[in-house]
């Protein structure tokens, strides 16, 4: 959990993932061959026994966030979103850029008409207030183009983990664990960049890898509340590893899906599937790049995805970890 905390509280929007990659490199150095491709993906190859097929695991290092695009005369920052962020989660949130903090400003409720109160402003109509006194000061201290993040948060309560960027530092954490526990067979682990901007990292990584079987380790969406435990919740916290058969980006390999559920059952690992076709991940790129690959995805369910604080269940994390390891011992032979 300590390492997960370090990963979640480190900052790395798409394309600016050096902080995350340096934590990963430190953790895995000496355990595998490490290389970085031209696009910025970190590729770790672990040598074990040979197997017929090339097996690659993927987890993405980037998180959703913002880039400052402009300042007005008073020094208020305009910004663009990096990745899919619903503007409803932005008003009043504290953000950070380096050691600077700022807040997404709101017009006081007292001054709003009834209809304005019910309306969520679009991101492009919002601004970040870093407390600058004017444009000149702002541009000097935090230039246009600076990356901005949700404020780092990480704590545990009961079985739940509350943190920034669980998507997909939780997948990264699982891959580091797999590398440390020395897989039985040759395995390639790809820490991909730029998933949130449209899986570009996975696309460029998959090109050179000649993957036969790709397994994506992710953090996936849940809308579970006490009022919604059924279909519209998509996944349940505490429901076990999410094994995907279909989402908006990918039709997963049916044999791998069947094998994964079999491995889960055999090893007593709790598992679930998505009850709605929703979301997408690096699998869509891995499946279709170069000569293509068979893909599977194992995910940890999380509420509040792509917001300041997402929430996952510790037991689901361990379920995905166990499944990912057990699956790796039986595929591609």
């Amino acid at each position: 959990m300590k390492l997960l905390k370090r990963l979640c509280t480190a900052n790395g929007i798409s394309g600016r993932e050096e902080n995350i990659k340096s934590i990963i490199k430190k953790e895995i150095s000496g355990l595998c061959d490490i290389s970085e491709d031209r696009f910025g993906n970190l590729i770790a190859t672990v040598h074990g026994k040979k197997r017929d097929k090339r097996v690659c695991y993927f987890a993405h290092t980037d998180e959703v966030g913002f880039i400052i695009s402009d300042y007005d005369e008073q020094g208020f920052a305009r910004f663009v979103n990096v990745g899919g962020i619903d503007a409803a989660v932005l008003p009043g949130k504290v953000l950070c850029s380096g050691r600077r903090k700022g807040v997404i400003g709101v017009c006081p409720v007292h001054l709003l008409s009834a209809s304005d109160k019910e309306t969520v402003l679009k991101s492009e109509d919002l601004f970040i207030d870093f407390g600058f006194e004017d444009k000149k000061q702002a541009e000097k201290r935090l230039p246009v183009g600076s990356a901005v993040y949700f404020e780092p948060t990480f704590y545990q309560a009961g079985n739940e983990i509350f943190a920034k960027a669980l998507d997909d530092r939780i997948g990264v954490r699982i891959m580091i664990d797999m590398i440390k526990s020395k897989p039985l067979y040759d395995t390639t682990f790809v820490f991909t960049c730029c998933e949130e901007t449209g899986t570009q990292g996975a696309e460029t990584a998959a090109y050179g890898l000649n993957t036969d079987i790709g397994v994506i380790l992710e953090c996936t969406t849940s809308a579970q509340t006490p009022d919604e435990n059924g279909g519209k919740a998509v996944t349940l916290l505490g429901g076990g590893a999410v094994i995907s058969y279909r989402d908006n980006g990918t039709m997963y390999d049916t044999e791998l899906f069947a094998l994964a559920t079999f491995v889960a059952e055999k090893n007593g690992i709790k598992w679930q599937t998505k009850t709605l076709v929703a979301g997408g991940n690096d699998a869509s790129a891995v499946q279709k790049t170069a000569y293509g690959a068979s893909v599977a995805a194992f995910s940890v369910a999380a509420r509040n995805l792509h917001s300041a604080i997402s929430v996952a269940n510790k037991n689901d994390y361990f379920s995905v970890l166990k499944l990912a390891k057990a699956f790796n011992d039986v595929i591609g032979l």
Binding site: A88, A223, D227
Partner: peptide, 26 residues
Amino acid sequence: CMPPHLLDSARIGKTPLVTDIFVDTG
């Protein structure tokens, strides 16, 4: 909060009612 992946178009751009807010304690 409803994740963007699952927002239906009727809910986009609308402030949630406080009675719809669940506070998750874990």
